[in-house]
Design a protein around this nucleic acid. Structure first.
Lengths: 275, 275
DNA sequence: TCTTGACTTTCACCCTACCTGAAAGTTGCA
DNA sequence: TGCAACTTTCAGGTAGGGTGAAAGTCAAGA
């Protein structure tokens, strides 16, 4: 019969921890004085505590340990649990290693004193988009602006509200020789899409963009013609963080002010970790 | 002026998160209706939120991000912060990789169906010990028991209470040819140690064991003569988890029953991760 | 003008694995 | 008896929000 302090010292744990384990039923004292509430432990309980600590070092949570120890779980079930934990750990380690890479990139860009204004890049997941699209065989910004205006006018004419901001999809081929082409996409719901397409004399098509789980995104504040710098910044970020581009880039017109120098544009690259 | 839902969707964060950021002062809405309490955000705030998210992806905490962004921290200070985080991350990753190794070892021992009874091994830190020691040139258990009895009698005679359990230190040389020797250590405080040494006719010496930060420990329940199995188990554990032994092993007599088959013994090996 | 549904607010409690501190009772020793 | 060491319960805290309830607000249709 040991008091809590002696038992705690024996196993190198704190008294509060032992009280907590008592509270959650993981390790109950062999005896509790009904008058004083004092907890008393026996040497015999040390192996049990030892088992708890051993499982804790594997990274298991206390509830899982309770399941294993209290209910005499089958070895197969324990194996399954450990394998699950193993997979989770590997995933976690990988995530942290990616954080390391990002910190590294950040430090390097800090050291060389920003030549470019610092664009903050974040990874996000985006949901699928349905809408209508208009194909353009040029990347000229003036053309884009013109046709975006035309689409907006059409939306207004048909009293259709877009379900999200309009975006420009860069679908050009990889080689830099061909001039490239873009799609202007207006996200609308399924019914509106049909209305618009029917009234567009064949210029609009139905457009379905799939969900993208890893989208590198950055914001460009200023005249849209200067957004090229943001594209560069994303490219550099990809290089530094070992990502490669796996689909059409997106340019989202978040805000179009009268003063174009105050416009806000989001650039998105769908990316994948390079092997 | 966007309502909270629209702003949240724009940046792919939850509304609760935005409210939380408002509460902790990390990102305040541009305007709050004094009557309804509704929060309103501006597109202009999106870059700020973007910066927050970018730092969050580096693993920084919200308070650190607030320091960086709210107070316009110097680039040098940011560098220092990132370097610190980098070091912490590396340490964390290493710890998790050790967990992986342990889980691996555990799975292997589960698969091959325990030939040995399962000994749970945990790593702990132990504090330094001062006490008196008696040197024996043999590892014979009967001799150990005899001299332990003698020391206990002496403690009683001098009315000295040990500050911890008695332990046996295995100091034998590495090669297995020589028979090896042990020290029996009785932890007592400094004053008692001198009393005992003075009365021991030169057989007892002052003994100071340093603190050990990584001690692999396991419990043996049963007759002390069978503790060899526990030594084996520790050896196997070391092999599986890539540790090597870096000092004398300890055998701690936690409980000595009249019935020796109910004795409880702790075996400790000081270890270090093998390079 | 009323209703309906979508939207937003605050409030309070939940999560892990404990830690810290306060107030009050208990034990052991001189 | 007095004092120090020890133990108890209880409240509140941690990081980063998630979840749910109750109540108030907004816009559009009838």
């Amino acid at each position: 019969m040991l008091k809590i302090r002696d038992f705690a010292r024996l196993a190198e744990v704190s008294m509060t921890t032992l009280r907590y384990y008592d509270e959650i039923g993981l390790l109950k004292p062999i005896h509790v004085d009904p008058e004083t509430g004092y907890r008393f432990y026996a040497m015999d309980q040390l192996p049990h505590l030892h088992r708890i600590l051993a499982f804790k070092e594997l990274g298991l949570g206390l509830t899982q340990i309770a399941e294993i120890l209290d209910e005499g779980m089958s070895p197969e079930a324990v194996q399954g649990m450990l394998r699950l934990k193993q997979a989770q750990l590997q995933q976690h380690i990988q995530a942290e290693q990616e954080q390391l890479v990002r910190i590294d990139a950040r430090l390097r860009s800090l050291e060389q004193g920003s030549g470019l204004p610092t664009y903050e890049v974040v990874l996000k997941a985006v949901k699928p988009v349905t809408g209508v699209s208009l194909h353009l065989e040029t990347t000229d910004l003036a053309y884009q602006a013109h046709w975006i205006g035309a689409i907006e006018a059409m939306l207004k004419r048909y009293a259709v509200k877009p379900s999200d901001h309009l975006l420009v999809l860069h679908t050009e081929s990889e080689d830099e020789c061909t001039p490239g082409s873009v799609e202007i996409v207006a996200p609308v719901d399924w019914r509106d899409a049909h209305t618009l397409i029917a009234g567009s004399e064949g210029r609009l098509k139905l457009c379905e963009l799939p969900a993208v789980s890893r989208m590198a995104s950055t914001l460009h504040h200023g005249h849209p013609a200067l957004a090229l710098v943001a594209y560069q910044a994303l490219g550099i970020w990809m290089e530094n963080n070992a990502y490669s581009i796996v689909g059409p880039r997106r340019k989202i017109r978040l805000r179009r002010e009268d003063n174009l120098n105050d416009a806000l544009t989001e650039i998105q690259f769908p990316v994948e970790k390079v092997a």
